[in-house]
Design a protein around this nucleic acid. Structure first.
Length: 734
DNA sequence: GACCTGCTGCGGGGTG
């Protein structure tokens, strides 16, 4: 058998030799034949730093080495920072091949774009938004320079699946194949991705019309050792609060200081506000111990400069550095590996926990994960929900799903993405000038990715878009942009399909620290924590949207806003499983491994006790005085559905953390009401969504241009699951 | 009690 290595271009082989790598990794060898074949899609799925990028580029560059006119490879990334990283990594290889590489995004140099525009060739590194802008504004040039394309490669593909942005990306790819006459002879797509749940479903997300086969390559290498520990903390509740910080959080900060100082770590704190609070406390601790600060915050509202300083410091590995961060350090930005990962408060999903864990584990040392959870001390005012220690048990369930079941959340691919569909209708009309309705439907829904949109939906939407002047129909029947459509598509803000809130900039002297949402209610003279430091607000300019600050002591982190994240059925079911058996330990051979510390174990025992006392295994509805609680142990879609069914029947209730609270009610009434609904026909998702006001259903960027019935249907699908809710009622309340 | 991402073309001013 020919060594796969020999099939690469001679200059690529030479480059490999110069790198001094002992051998190609397993996935890199496996990827060579299907990439060189160039007649199929390829999914390369492996953890961070497993060499996925090279697995694609080594053979792909070999295949396009002789092409001189037009782009050979289109690389698409969700992040500008990742494009810059890849550009640096590709430079030496492409120099060897005398191949042009062009980074193309909002911040990349005009000179580089100009050069590529007059002489398109080699590799183009781009974001979906920049690709959208090219299609809308320079379709003629795109047709010319993209026709020779041999590969389209998408990095961090998991970050796109099931999202508005992912839907736009797939639609862009179809439009690209259409404009280059490649619909019947499709351009191979390669997806690079972290390990995904339900891998076999991913090819359908990469090419919904299945016009090319897909080969999947996964790293067979056994996972390195994982060390996990959960630690519990107790928050006293009856202390009269003068504005001091929560005691448990102070203890957690001391623990982080003790564990992390002197090495490099990542601390995931789940919210920007908590990230800031912890970073500032750690900075204070450094000051108290008279040592240089090595703890810095990293989140989406922080100025790019501050973030990049921290990323560079982590990557250099010369100074010990701990980043307190949100999911901004979860994706593939090149920061090297850290000694360990800490998670403060329960993770939001098993898949993100897995991504986070993958950031640790240096040079054959194990991946280390510590989860720090605080729960409130119980008092006579506490109720069952406090006693169950839900956050702790959710963390335990997620660890078990990650390690024992090797399971993580699959993406929700059943959504209609109406906001993005409307965007794509406008984009296609802007691109062509005018287009017939049947051409639009064929391109976007039949060949394209909007499979959940029926002809009826489409007609209704076009009619409504006419009414609100987004589009108009010519006598010939062709559709063109209307006044409002012209206005929207002419603005540079058109290219992104996701919504961003209006923000203030925070400025100290001449330095921009970051941004805050306009509704975070900051007042003059207020003390705030931002960028891990303490500031006093000196002035607020409402017109220019600037908050001026100066350095000070004291203060609290500001409020940021955001929508909640939903928990999957499987996580809540695993929680139920842990409560039922009273055991969270992990079996290894014939012993059971306990990975929880003493306080955590006591908290868990309390939770298990409350579960038993309330007899929740047999009775999911618990009566507490005048109020009732339902514990469905199901994901948020089912919880939402049960909640809205009860509201519809006249109960006053709300849900949080998977538990439904019903005021002034009685368990039998609730039970009978739900059983009655389940037996006499449960309303479908759209009917349930009708109960909510329009305002409550406006979520995505272009939702306010949708006709009300489509908005309602799209929202219903996203929020509710009538079938699963009915199933739950019938099997748990009878 | 709550995450993240991105986009243009041009005019004005400063610097080499």
């Amino acid at each position: 058998m020919i060594e796969q290595y020999q099939r690469l271009d001679k200059r690529v082989q030479k480059w490999l030799f110069n790198q001094g790598w002992p051998d190609l990794r397993e996935i890199q060898k496996q990827a060579i034949p299907p990439i060189l074949a160039g007649d199929r899609d390829v999914l390369i799925s492996a953890s961070t730093a497993a060499g996925k990028t090279e697995a694609f580029f080594l053979p792909a560059c070999s295949a396009i080495a002789e092409e001189k006119h037009g782009f050979g490879i289109l690389y698409i990334s969700p992040l500008k920072a990742l494009i810059n990283d890849q550009y640096r990594r590709l430079e030496s290889l492409c120099e060897m091949l005398d191949m042009q590489v062009t980074p193309w995004h909002g911040d990349s140099l005009q000179s580089k774009k100009k050069k590529a525009r007059s002489n398109p060739s080699g590799i183009l590194l781009i974001t979906p938004e920049s690709l959208e802008s090219l299609l809308v504004r320079e379709a003629g040039w795109v047709k010319q320079s993209f026709t020779p394309l041999k590969y389209i490669v998408i990095d961090e593909f998991h970050a796109f699946i099931g999202t508005e942005r992912g839907q736009q990306l797939l639609s862009l790819l179809t439009r690209l194949e259409h404009i280059t006459n490649r619909i019947s002879n499709p351009i191979p797509r390669v997806a690079l991705s972290a390990t995904l749940g339900e891998l076999e479903k991913v090819p359908l997300s990469l090419r919904p019309n299945k016009s090319l086969p897909c080969e999947t390559i996964t790293s067979s290498k056994h996972q390195s050792t994982i060390k996990v520990q959960v630690k519990g903390y107790l928050e006293p509740v009856n202390i009269t609060a003068n504005d001091s910080r929560p005691l448990a959080e102070q203890q957690i900060c001391q623990e982080i200081f003790r564990l992390c100082r002197g090495d490099s770590h990542l601390v995931f704190a789940n919210s920007r506000s908590r990230t800031e609070s912890i970073a500032a406390q750690l900075c204070d601790l450094c000051e108290q111990h008279v040592v240089p600060n090595e703890f810095f915050p990293h989140h989406g509202s922080l100025a790019k400069e501050l973030r990049e300083d921290l990323e560079a410091r982590l990557q250099k590995e010369t100074l010990p550095t701990t980043a307190i961060c949100t999911m901004t350090l979860e994706l593939g930005i090149d920061i090297g590996k850290v000694n360990s990962v800490l998670q403060v408060t329960a993770p939001h999903s098993v898949s993100s926990l897995r991504q986070r864990l993958g950031r640790s584990g240096r040079r054959n040392s194990p991946s280390i994960l510590r989860i720090l959870i605080s729960e409130n001390e119980l008092s006579d005012k506490s109720n069952l929900v406090d006693g169950l220690r839900l956050e702790l048990v959710q963390s335990l369930a997620m660890i078990r799903l990650l390690i024992v079941s090797n399971w993580f959340e699959p993406a929700d691919t059943e959504q209609m993405h109406l906001s993005t569909f409307l965007h794509q209708i406008l984009a296609v009309i802007a691109q062509w000038g005018s287009v017939r309705a049947d051409q639009l439907y064929s391109l976007l829904c039949q060949q394209g990715t909007f499979k959940e949109i029926s002809i009826q939906h489409f007609k209704q939407l076009l009619t409504h878009m006419g009414t609100v002047r987004l589009i108009q129909q010519l006598n010939s029947g062709e559709l063109v942009l209307g006044l409002e459509g012209e206005r929207i598509t002419n603005s540079y803000t058109f290219y992104a399909v996701f919504k961003t809130p209006e923000e203030f900039r925070i400025v100290s002297g001449s330095k921009m620290l970051g941004t805050l949402p306009v509704d975070s209610l900051i007042l003059k003279d207020q003390h705030i924590i931002f960028g891990g430091r303490r500031w006093k607000v000196t002035d607020i300019d409402d017109d220019k949207k600037v908050i001026y600050v100066t350095s000070t002591k004291g203060g609290k982190p500001p409020k940021f806003n955001g929508s909640g994240m939903s928990i999957h059925d499987k996580v809540r079911q695993e929680m139920l499983n842990i409560y039922r058996t009273g055991d969270y330990r992990i079996e290894a051979g014939n012993q059971k491994i306990d990975f929880v510390d003493n306080i955590g174990r006591q908290l868990f025992q309390e939770g298990a006790y409350f579960f038993k006392e309330a007899d929740l295994e047999k009775n999911p509805i618990y009566q507490n005085g005048k109020h009732c609680y339902i514990f469905p142990w199901m994901g948020d879609k089912v919880v939402n559905t049960l909640t809205i069914l009860l509201i519809r029947s006249g109960f006053v209730c709300n849900s949080f953390g998977g538990v439904i609270e019903i005021n002034n009610s009685n368990a039998d009434d609730i039970k009978n009401s739900l059983l009655d609904i389940a037996k006499h026909g449960i309303p479908n998702e759209t009917e349930l969504a009708k109960i909510l006001s329009i305002q409550q259903k406006l979520i995505e960027k272009y939702d306010d241009y949708l006709p009300e019935n489509l908005l309602t249907e799209g929202y219903g699908r996203k929020a509710f699951d009538s079938t699963a809710a009915r199933q739950w009622i019938l099997s748990n309340l009878t």
